[in-house]
């Protein structure tokens, strides 16, 4: 047998950090925008959503990688869907039991993690051909990179749209026009379209920094 690889070897760390820059699932690979932009109005649901996605991508990659030699190739999509759907049901039931308010806010978007392309994409591209542990790390890294984008968008939207972060007031009350100040919340930024425009701006900044990602 080959020598056992340490958990924090350079290769594994690269697997985890790569999704944050040149392999970012959202800004580079264009995966998984579907399910989650609608929950970025406030920071708290965005964080809960990110954690759910991280857990599901990591565990789904891990489980499929364990099963990869026993799944017949022809029916692999349906097997993967069943694994992912089971994990999502678990996450949904846990949220309903321990964080009912947040699970009401997330409404259908927890269920939509099933069809989130990141999960299927990482399973197809990585977990089917690699050992369980690297697959777990790859899944966690991609989930975390995705969560980072969600949390960034939600941070901007809650700060400028409501003047709060995680429900705590950041912009002082006395600044508001109605209290004799000069400040007014930006009503536009809490509307759905601004999530898309903010994402466009994030991609713009990312490609200014990393020139190799630009489209020809």
């Amino acid at each position: 047998m080959s020598q056992k690889e340490p958990l924090f070897s350079a290769k594994n760390i690269k697997l985890f950090t790569d999704p944050f820059n040149s392999g970012n699932p959202i800004t580079v690979l264009v995966l998984g925008i579907c399910s989650a932009l609608a929950v970025t109005v406030k920071l708290q649901p965005a964080i809960v959503m990110s954690l759910s996605v991280i857990i599901v991508t990591g565990l789904a990659s891990f489980i499929v990688s364990l099963l990869r030699n026993t799944i017949p190739n022809r029916i692999r999509i349906i097997v993967q869907l069943v694994v992912v759907a089971t994990l999502v049901i678990l996450v949904d039931q846990i949220l309903k039991a321990f964080a009912y308010e947040v699970s009401k806010q997330l409404s259908v978007f927890v269920g939509l993690i099933i069809t989130n392309c990141i999960i299927m994409g990482r399973i197809e591209a990585f977990a089917l051909g690699n050992k369980p542990l690297p697959s777990l790390i790859d899944g966690l890294g991609n989930g975390a990179a995705y969560g980072m984008i969600l949390v960034t968008v939600a941070f901007v939207r809650e700060l400028f749209g409501a003047g709060t972060l995680l429900g705590y007031r950041i912009v002082p009350d006395a600044w508001y026009l109605k209290n004799g100040g000069f400040y007014e919340n930006n009503g536009l930024i809490i509307l759905p379209p601004m999530a898309l425009i903010l994402l466009g701006i994030i991609i713009w900044i990312h490609r200014i920094i990393n020139k190799s990602l630009r489209d020809k």
């Binding site: 379209p193 425009i197 466009g200 630009r214």
Partner: peptide, 21 residues
């Protein structure tokens, strides 16, 4: 150049969404 492709598509989609609002 940095906005070509994906970036501008998102921003245009956002503007279309504002129209739909």
């Amino acid at each position: 150049a940095p906005l070509r492709g994906l970036g501008i598509t998102f921003i245009v989609t956002g503007l279309m969404a504002i129209a739909f609002m």
